[in-house]
Amino acid sequence: MAKTDEHQAWLAELEAKSRAKQVGFINGISGKLRRPRSAEPPAHPFRGAPEFWNEFEWPIDERVEKFRANFKAAGGHSERLATMEDARAFIASKAEEMSAKYVIRQNQPELNALGLEEAIPDASFSVWNSDAEEHWKARAAEADFGIVVADYAAAYTGSVTVLSSKDKGRSVSLLPTVLMVIIPIERLHTRLGQILVNFDQAGRENLPAGIHFISGPSRSADIENDLTIGVHGPGVVYTLIVG
């Protein structure tokens, strides 16, 4: 859809309508609540998790162990590796084992320094959004492997968090058949709340468009409760904790 002037004018018209309607809509709610509308933020004494929970933290080795156990229980794979060189070797061996032909990766400094292209010479590589003319979603959709570095991870639920940006496509962790996630160990926390609080602190203006928590391979139990893996998203997911 071309962002034509006419289209912009229509959107502007909708916005004017919406702003006008908002006043009555919100006042209607105040009316139903039988009190005048307040512009002040109400005191929220129950914000976030219960107090006892916020003190809970596992030591790093236990975090790694629990993360891996949870991720495997969800049908994924997880390894702990000492160095980024080990991660490169691991990914290269899996690419060979599964004969990966097309690989797409994020444009992240850790991956740029990794030299995966040399380690997997038989595969055709795409680096997210490096060329404005490229049809990036199609590149991700055809890929056998998608490779990303996680922004955060939480051991208690076995989840990794990936944030979108110019250099980090949402499609890279979604469309390929196999997803490889590298987790630098210092980004592995215990609880979800330790990750979520960052988004409150960053504030609206600084949030990316997409924040995605991934806790295993895509799955469904919609046919007779029979667990199916790889329904729409990647069916094979490796998390490599490095450090």
Binding site: T157, G158, F199, L207, G210, I211, H212, S218, G233
Partner: peptide, 9 residues
Amino acid sequence: LTVYMSGIT
């Protein structure tokens, strides 16, 4: 947690 939890801003 569900496999995906997405926050879209």
